[in-house]
Amino acid sequence: MGKVVVVTSGKGGVGKTTSTAALGAVLAQSGKKVVLIDFDVGLRNLDLVMGAERRVVFDLVNVTQGQAKLAQALIRDKRVESLFLLPASQTRDKDALTEEGVAGVINALRDKFDYVLCDSPAGIERGAQLAMRFADEAVIVTNPEVSSVRDSDRIIGLLDSKTLKAEKGERVTKHVLVTRYDAGRAARGEMLSIDDVLEILSVPLLGIIPESQGVLRASNVGSPVTLNEPTNAAARAYADAAKRLEGEDVPMVTPVEKKGLLNRLLGRRVA
């Protein structure tokens, strides 16, 4: 039986979709069978980040409404054999997804895959709640910034009350993934520190992903950063985070500011 992991945050634009793609790709590369589900109905983007946008035939809503079989809607990644995507629908009908429909899809996928990664929409409403509903674990994507941390706190509240596990008196295993971490700004004290974030949220840390131009390049070409530039700092941080999700004990490295000579003279940061 596979693990269902929701990638969630409350706030938009913090890196949920980027993280779902990057973590899913390394897990699959290490031999796991992985499926990524885009729950952002109406505003799908995971297909673009994965470079599968031209190949979408059916979507999650089609499957839950019986217009397509699950196997027909899954798109196999062209780079990693054991990686699949179930795209979101572009429908404007926010109620197109039902809890029963989602339960059916997740239960079927849980049987066949090692990891079912659910990319949550932003917000704390129905869509975000459906994405987390059947989760065993949660990756709470947080930027070291006040509004993101506050929204993460609200999401933690929902994970502890509105999930199936919570209703059964069990617990969703929670991890905080700090993303878009800017070492320069942290050193200058302009950003919340990792310790601040962890102390406020009191959820264990899965990883620290530095702000990196490589993430933008990867999304430009439609490839998870972990596949597109495996040696990039953000990619390596995602690879470590994936190992920790697997239960491995990998030492945590806090990104430090790297300045090349030229950049130092120009006072610019490099990523």
Partner: peptide, 11 residues
């Protein structure tokens, strides 16, 4: 239905 495989590539 299970024996129908559909793939698409939009150019």
């Amino acid at each position: 239905q299970d024996d129908v495989k559909i793939t698409m590539d939009r150019g």
